[in-house]
C-alpha cells in the first residue's frame, strides 16, 4: 500500500474571509458606538427638603424657573440678569444657599442652566425644589 506523501508546504491561509469579517466588525462599531461629548452635573435627589418649609434667611436665594422664564422675588428676569444676580449673591454671602424652584411646566434646559451657572460660581448648596401648588 502506498501512502500519499504529505504536502511539502502547507497552503497559506487565505486572507480574504478574514478581511471580510474585519470589515463587517469595523462597520458595526462605526455605526453602533456613540461619540457625544457628554458631561454630568451632580444634583442631590430632593428629599425632605421639598416639603419642609424653608425659613427665609438672608443667605438664601430662591430662583424660580417658570415655563416663560426666570423669576426672583416675584420679578421676571432674563437669563443674563439672573446670572448677574447669582454672581453678586455668590460674592456677597459667606454661605450662599440657592434654591431652584421649578414650576411644573418649566422645561429642563433652564433648570440645567441655573445649576450650570451656580457650579461655575462655586455655589455648592443648591437644592432643586418643586413649586408648591398655590
Amino acid at each position: 500500500m502506498q501512502l500519499e506523501e504529505p504536502l511539502r508546504r502547507r497552503r497559506r491561509l487565505s486572507l480574504t474571509p478574514l478581511i471580510d469579517v474585519v470589515f463587517i466588525l469595523l462597520i458595526f462599531f462605526m455605526l453602533a458606538s456613540t461619540f457625544t461629548t457628554e458631561q454630568i452635573l451632580t444634583v442631590e435627589a430632593p428629599g425632605e427638603r421639598v416639603s419642609a418649609p424653608s425659613e427665609e434667611s438672608p443667605a438664601l436665594l430662591r430662583v424660580q424657573v417658570a415655563g416663560s422664564g426666570f423669576i426672583i422675588d416675584e420679578t421676571p428676569l432674563s437669563g443674563t440678569e439672573v446670572r448677574e444676580r447669582l454672581e453678586r449673591f455668590a460674592a456677597e454671602e459667606d454661605e450662599p444657599r440657592l434654591q431652584i424652584v421649578a414650576h411644573a411646566d418649566a422645561p429642563v434646559q433652564p433648570i440645567v442652566q441655573v445649576i450650570d451657572w451656580s457650579a461655575a460660581l462655586g455655589l455648592d448648596d443648591v437644592a432643586l425644589l418643586r413649586q408648591e401648588a398655590p
Binding site: 444634583v43 435627589a45 430632593p46 421639598v50 424657573v65 421649578a102 414650576h103 411644573a104 411646566d105 418649566a106 422645561p107 429642563v108 434646559q109 433648570i111 440645567v112 432643586l128 418643586r130
Partner: peptide, 15 residues
C-alpha cells in the same frame, strides 16, 4: 433628560 422635558416629570423621577 430631554431639554424640553417638563420639570414636574424630572422631579417625579427624582422623587
Amino acid at each position: 433628560a430631554d431639554r424640553q422635558a417638563r420639570a414636574d416629570a424630572l422631579l417625579d423621577l427624582m422623587d
